[in-house]
Design a protein around this nucleic acid. Structure first.
Length: 377
RNA sequence: GUGGGUGUAGCUCAGUUGGUUAGAGCACCAGGUUGUGGCCCUGGGGGCCGUGGGUUCGAGUCCCAUCAUCCACC
């Protein structure tokens, strides 16, 4: 059994679990930092481990185009290549084909797209998506799916479902390594009935190691996404892990854990860090704001991260405005620490059986904002 | 010293035959950012048009002087 459900919260749908992968166990609920180009931007792997990262995400689309999956295999596989010995989840490349490539054309066979790097043309099939992920040495692979934008006609979403299901089946058949895990992706846009229909068809195939909810947080109001997640809890099998792809903000994570989600990934902590947006116990803080010019306090007085131990808001503001490399590094350390620590606290609360009060306290502190904004100049 | 060029937003510059309330990019300030292109999107504040005269109904624009600055030649 690869997934072990340890505990369920009495008042919410929150779950505590253990997921076994070829490179080790991970505790769920979990947040997976995104390492697109075989690196979590700005972070050394010992720093990642030090702040409690258990599993990271690599991008099939990017690594396939550069430096190439075969090259990575020649150099010992993705783990050795990037010096990360823990578990790695790889996406299928589907999302990036739709979001990054210059043009893409979907057929039953797969998706033809033009590289955003050099314009070269490629055909990504379900079989190739699996082959690339196996070649990289992924611990958790994702099926190739069609990710539709928002808003989109229901009829088009319905039509897309059959393709996503057919591709999922082909991905399963293309899988050659029994050790690696493979997750299916439930699509269906913001339509609960289509979501359930998609799941039912995937369930018939029934050999996936987990189920992901895809195609959310692509521009729809978060309330709609929450509704999809909440409803999915009723039909997703409790004995398999559930992964909400691409989500999200701290508020989204805490809400969706309460709806039974086990795994998340999102670029928000890392990308926001590079743009100066920091997450704190009391909500978001944009470090470039003039109010921090002479603020000698840390980002978050309750935070135990390296950045908060050593540096002031005033210094971090200066670095961010100067676009210094260290700005991205220190901000990323803080944001990732915040996200990973938040999930750690959530797991603790579930273990203690009081996740709902943890949720309430979390939102209370976020909404309160900062008690004192800045010292007088 | 002589000849020529340039002075417009913090910076780099547009600005039509003289015609409403002088614009842009960058910077700055403030929102946004959800399966990563070190971005991107939206809004905002900012001008004695070097200075002083003159012509004109009307001057950033034309004329004179002056100051600053750059280039070339003595």
């Amino acid at each position: 059994m690869t997934f072990q459900l340890l505990q369920k919260d009495p008042n919410t749908q929150a779950r505590l679990g253990l997921l076994q992968t070829p490179h080790g166990m991970i505790e769920t609920p979990i947040f997976m930092p995104v390492g697109t180009h075989a690196t979590v931007k700005g972070m050394r792997v010992d720093e990642l481990k030090g702040m409690g990262a258990q599993i990271i995400l690599g991008n099939t689309y990017h690594l396939y185009l550069r430096p190439g999956h075969q090259l990575i295999r020649e150099l010992g596989g993705l783990h050795r290549f990037m010096n990360w010995s823990g578990p790695i989840l790889t996406d299928s490349g589907g999302y990036q084909v739709f979001s990054l490539s210059k043009m893409c054309k979907v057929s039953n066979e797969g998706v033809t797209f033009q590289s955003h790097l050099d314009g070269s043309s490629h055909l990504l099939t379900p079989e190739l998506a699996i082959q690339i992920q196996e070649t990289l040495g992924s611990d958790i692979m994702m099926v190739l799916d069609e990710c539709l934008p928002y808003p989109v006609e229901k009829s088009q979403v319905a039509k897309s479902l059959d393709l996503t299901v057919a591709w999922a089946k082909r991905c399963l058949q293309a899988k050659t390594n029994p050790d690696n895990l493979l997750f299916a992706i439930v699509q269906g846009g913001v339509f609960p009935d289509l979501r359930q229909e998609c799941f039912s068809k995937l369930r018939e195939i029934d050999s996936f190691n987990g189920f992901a909810l895809g195609g959310l947080s692509v521009g729809e109001p978060m309330e709609l996404a929450y509704e999809i997640v909440e409803r999915a809890n009723s039909y997703l099998p409790s004995e398999k892990p559930r992964y909400l792809m691409g989500v999200g903000m701290p508020e989204d994570l805490i809400t969706c854990i309460g709806h039974g989600i086990d795994m998340f990934d999102c670029v928000v902590p890392t990308r926001s860090a590079r743009h100066g947006l920091l997450f704190t116990t009391h909500g978001r803080l944009y470090i470039q704001h003039a109010q921090f010019t002479r603020d000698g306090r840390p980002i978050d007085e309750k935070c135990a991260c390296y950045t908060c131990q050593k540096y002031s808001r005033a210094y971090l503001r200066h670095l961010s405005l100067s676009k210094e490399i260290l700005s991205a590094i220190l901000n990323t350390i803080h944001n990732l620490h915040y996200f990973l620590n938040l999930l750690g606290e959530a797991r603790f609360a579930i273990r203690e059986g009081n996740f709902s009060s943890f949720q309430k306290e979390f939102f209370k502190q976020i909404q309160e904002g900062e008690v004192s904004v800045a010292p007088k100049n």
